[in-house]
Each structure stands twice: as structure tokens, then as C-alpha cells.
């Protein structure tokens, strides 16, 4: 057969084209679908709750993935900025995946538990009020929309999360009781952004915040458990800059860039506790303060060891000491 005749037989030509595109498809895409090593599964990573599932769907609806990624790459600076790199197992329940392709905003794969809920309510309602230079849209209207849960049970079933309709109803009711209780730690900020009529209901923002708080949590919990109590790195004992004026001034700048959003102007308090005081929630010795700032604390104090480094943490502590003395 003359090779040229391929260019005279359109149907044969189309079939040849299908064969040619199939080779790469089979090797790089189709076969991996059937290899368990492509998407390994681990019991350490749990499916989303009913509320988190709804929150994830709002994240998808609003296209948050167009500006935020959810994959920390195994690069030194990236791990320092966001936290440990992403594992394949973490995505096992994700349909669709939400890794993203642009980082107009920061990565979110490790944001769960990093800040208190109140931080998210305030931030989502008006990002520029917290960070003047941010270009994130304000999503205040999410707090003004009642969460539609009519499809939740169906969604959970399609996604194969392994709990039934009754469990969905129970989770939704329990979550509603939690966030609408006046004693809930983030109640004040939630009420501020939520219209009175919806304060007793679940809003879209409630669900979105719940979803954000789930991101990366399973991995961090697993790592804490593996490390066991008492093996956390031995804290530094003494501030090398104690009483150093210039270090305190540098510390002030670092404080304004990193701490002020939560601890307020001059440490007057906000989402985070007041720092212009001699009574600190997690202890007031140099070692205590260093442990708190470097390692973070449950309830929304992020860890600053990686992004700031020891030196700058001591400088911030020097500044906190100045605030203490000014508060006396």
C-alpha cells in the first residue's frame, strides 16, 4: 500500500489519528487510574463532614481555586511559609481535586487550625480591613445567605463518605448548636457579620469557614500524634536581646507585620489575647513565650518558627516585654 493513500482515505486517517493519540493517553493517564500507588489511601485522612462538604462546594462555586492553591511543594521556602509539603493521601476524598494553578493569594493546604474562626469571619467579610494591600474580593454576602442543605445527604452518598442521612442531619444540627451558642469563642465576630435574622441559622460563610478549618488538619494531627508528648524540640531558654533597645524596635516592626491583625494595636488584644500585660495565657517566662510564638498554640495561634526564625522571634519577644512594662 502506498503511504500516500493514507492522505486519500479520511476515515482511515481519522482512525490512525485516534491510535496515535491513544498511546500517550494510555501510558500517562489511563493505566495510572488502575495503579493503587497513584492515589494511595490512608485511614489518617478522614472524609469531610456534612458541613465541610457544603463549605467545599461554596469554595468551588465562588472559584476560590482560581486564586488559591492547595498543594505545598517540597521546596524549602514553601514548607517554611505554609507548612509541611502535600501528600497524595491527603487528596483521597477530593472529587474534584482543588490544587489550583495560580497563587494570586497564598496556598491554603495548611490553613486549617492556623487562625481562630473569628479571624476568618472578619477576613472573609472584608479582607482589606485586615490587610490593606490585599486584593481579595470581599465575601460579606456569604454571611447573608442561609446554607441550603437540601442536597447534603445526596452529596455525601455520591461522594461515598460512608455515613447516612440521619448522621448528616445530626451533624448539621450539632454544628448549628455550636456556632450559634453565645458562648462560642468566635460568637462575637460571627454576630457582627451575620444579619440578626440568620444568627440562629447556618449560613454559607459558616460552612466555608468549617471547610477552611479542615484543610491540612488530619496531617498535622497525625504528625503530632507520631511525635508524642514531650519530644517537641527543647525550647530556647533565655532571650539574648533582653533589654536591647534596637532589637525591641525591630521587634515592633515584625509585630506590626505579623501579629497586629490578631493581637491588636500595641498588643491591646483582638482575636488573640492581650499582650500588653504581665499575665500571659500560656506562661510568661522567656521560654514560655518562645514556645508559644515558635510552635503555636491550639485555638488559632500559628507557628512562627519557620517563617520568622529564632532571631526575629526573640526580637518580637523583646518588644512584648516593652509592652508589658508600659502596661504596668
Amino acid at each position: 500500500m502506498n503511504v500516500n493513500s493514507l492522505y486519500e482515505k479520511p476515515v482511515l486517517f481519522a482512525l490512525a489519528a485516534v491510535v496515535v493519540i491513544s498511546v500517550g493517553t494510555l501510558v500517562t493517564t489511563f493505566i495510572p487510574l488502575f495503579l493503587p500507588s497513584t492515589q494511595p489511601v490512608s485511614p489518617l485522612f478522614t472524609p469531610y463532614t456534612a458541613v465541610e462538604t457544603e463549605g467545599r462546594d461554596i469554595y468551588i462555586r465562588e472559584g476560590c481555586n482560581n486564586c488559591h492553591t492547595q498543594t505545598v511543594r517540597p521546596l524549602r521556602a514553601e514548607v517554611a511559609r505554609y507548612g509541611d509539603y502535600s501528600r497524595a493521601e491527603e487528596s483521597a476524598w477530593d472529587r474534584p481535586f482543588l490544587w489550583g494553578s495560580r497563587r494570586t493569594g497564598p496556598d491554603l493546604a495548611r490553613v486549617g487550625g492556623k487562625y481562630p474562626d473569628a479571624w476568618h469571619y472578619r477576613h472573609m467579610a472584608n479582607p482589606q480591613a485586615m490587610f490593606g494591600k490585599s486584593n481579595m474580593p470581599a465575601y460579606a454576602w456569604l454571611a447573608k445567605a442561609k446554607l441550603d442543605t437540601s442536597l447534603t445527604a445526596r452529596k455525601v452518598k455520591v461522594l461515598g463518605f460512608g455515613y447516612d442521612e440521619a448522621e448528616v442531619a445530626r451533624q448539621l444540627a450539632a454544628f448549628r448548636r455550636t456556632v450559634t451558642a453565645p458562648t462560642w469563642p468566635s460568637a462575637q465576630e460571627r454576630s457582627r457579620v451575620t444579619p440578626a435574622a440568620l444568627r440562629g441559622e447556618l449560613t454559607e460563610l459558616d460552612a466555608l469557614v468549617a471547610y477552611l478549618q479542615k484543610l491540612g488538619r488530619d496531617l498535622m494531627a497525625a504528625q503530632r500524634a507520631a511525635a508524642g508528648p514531650g519530644t517537641a524540640e527543647a525550647a530556647e531558654k533565655k532571650n539574648p536581646y533582653a533589654g536591647n533597645r534596637t532589637a525591641g524596635e525591630e521587634g515592633e516592626k515584625i509585630f506590626e507585620e505579623n501579629c497586629k491583625v490578631c493581637h491588636g494595636e500595641k498588643g491591646a488584644g483582638g482575636f488573640g489575647p492581650k499582650l500588653a500585660t504581665t499575665k500571659h495565657k500560656f506562661g510568661g517566662t522567656d521560654a514560655d513565650l518562645f514556645t508559644t510564638v515558635s510552635g503555636g498554640r491550639p485555638g488559632g495561634m500559628p507557628s512562627f518558627l519557620q517563617p520568622l526564625g529564632k532571631d526575629r522571634i526573640w526580637k518580637v519577644i523583646t518588644y512584648i516585654r516593652r509592652l508589658e512594662s508600659e502596661s504596668r
Binding site: 493517564t29 495510572p32 487510574l33 492515589q39 497524595a88 487528596s91 476524598w93 474534584p96 481535586f97 490544587w99
Partner: peptide, 8 residues
């Protein structure tokens, strides 16, 4: 597709 497979 889920997770890594969905991405791929």
C-alpha cells in the same frame, strides 16, 4: 475521579 487521578 478522585484526588491525584482527578488532577492527572
Amino acid at each position: 475521579y478522585a484526588g491525584v487521578n482527578d488532577a492527572n
